[in-house]
């Protein structure tokens, strides 16, 4: 491009345009990054070269049948606790929103108590319930609490009851997020309160409820490890049992960590997928819900 004398003022544009632009280096960040790499690398080297870690043991135990059994139980605890707490959470949330002071009061106290005491304490408490309820007698039926409440049931009870309190608050938030005009419109059309809830309010609340439920599920995968205090045979219990015998403590904790990371990563991917589906359409129902509705409609038409 040439400039004529007539275009005064832009005459210098050629030299200006050709100069390279050098972004400002943030030297502080670079130094920090270098130090960080040095520190992490050094620590990795230290661990890897440690004569006290038997690396081969990790591979050896990673797919050990006992470990796999533990993983199954951890997944079972997670799924059961989440299912129970979602159902119970809906009930507690509705009691909390009830106009009856006894019902809403009970729900408030429930949430206050189970969120306010450590889960670890609740697990140990349920495991030791026979200390103050030795047996349950209903008429001729006599049940020893000890046989009724095994480590498994105590652990599941504690996880579910505790999670219910959090779930109730999540569901309550979802129900309150649905405009009041929605239930009014349904009521005016002649829906019963139950129909209004299941056909109009809950499907809309689901959009708000599903993301935090995903977070809770991922968190639950790790929280189940607490039940190892009552030896409930989850992944951590199994790992502890093994290292109690062979003293490969670090190695087996690494095995457990690898599996927890695998489970939470998979769960996070699933959650991300569900949330992308939810986000796709602002006002259309979540596909999950539509699929469920289609399923139940199909089952209803057969019945």
């Amino acid at each position: 491009m040439t400039t004529t004398a007539g275009e005064a003022g832009v005459g210098r544009s050629d030299d200006v345009r050709d100069k390279r632009i050098v972004p400002r280096r943030n030297w502080g960040e670079w130094i920090l990054a270098a130090l960080l790499m040095l520190g992490v690398g050094g620590f990795a080297l230290l661990v890897a070269s440690s004569p006290n870690v038997a690396w081969s043991a990790i591979g050896e135990y990673l797919f050990d049948p006992t470990i796999i059994e533990g993983i199954k139980l951890t997944l079972l605890f997670t799924v059961l606790a989440m299912v129970i707490s979602i159902v119970a959470g809906v009930v507690i949330a509705m009691m909390r929103l009830s106009s009856n002071p006894v019902l809403s009061g009970f729900a408030s106290v429930y949430i206050w108590f189970f969120r306010g005491t450590p889960l670890l304490v609740q697990i140990i408490f349920w495991f030791n319930i026979q200390l103050f309820i030795p047996s349950i007698d209903i008429g001729p039926i006599h049940l020893e609490t000890n046989t009724l409440i095994s480590a498994f049931t105590a652990a599941l009870l504690a996880l579910s009851l505790n999670e219910t309190a959090y779930m109730a608050e999540i569901v309550r938030g979802g129900l309150l997020a649905v405009d009041k005009g929605q239930s009014e419109a349904a009521t005016a059309l002649g829906y019963t309160p139950f129909q209004t809830l299941t056909r109009v309010v809950l499907p809309q609340a689901l959009r708000v409820i599903i993301p935090p439920v995903g977070n809770q599920t991922i968190s639950m995968l790790k929280t189940t490890s607490l039940v190892s205090v009552v030896a409930a045979q989850d992944l951590l219990t199994r790992v502890q049992n093994i290292y109690a015998k062979n003293f490969l403590i670090i190695e087996l904790l690494l095995v457990a960590s690898i599996w927890y990371l695998v489970m939470t990563t998979v769960a996070s991917l699933v959650q991300g997928w569900i949330e992308r589906r939810l986000g796709q359409s602002e006002s259309e129902p979540p596909r999950l819900w539509r699929a469920f509705r289609r399923l139940s409609a199909a089952m209803g038409s057969k019945g």
Partner: peptide, 25 residues
Amino acid sequence: GSAELARQRRDIGMVFQRFNLFPHL
């Protein structure tokens, strides 16, 4: 009761200021 109220409301149509259509349908 709620079932009887629902029955009575079936025959009375209502249109609201803010439409209140069901956004998920």
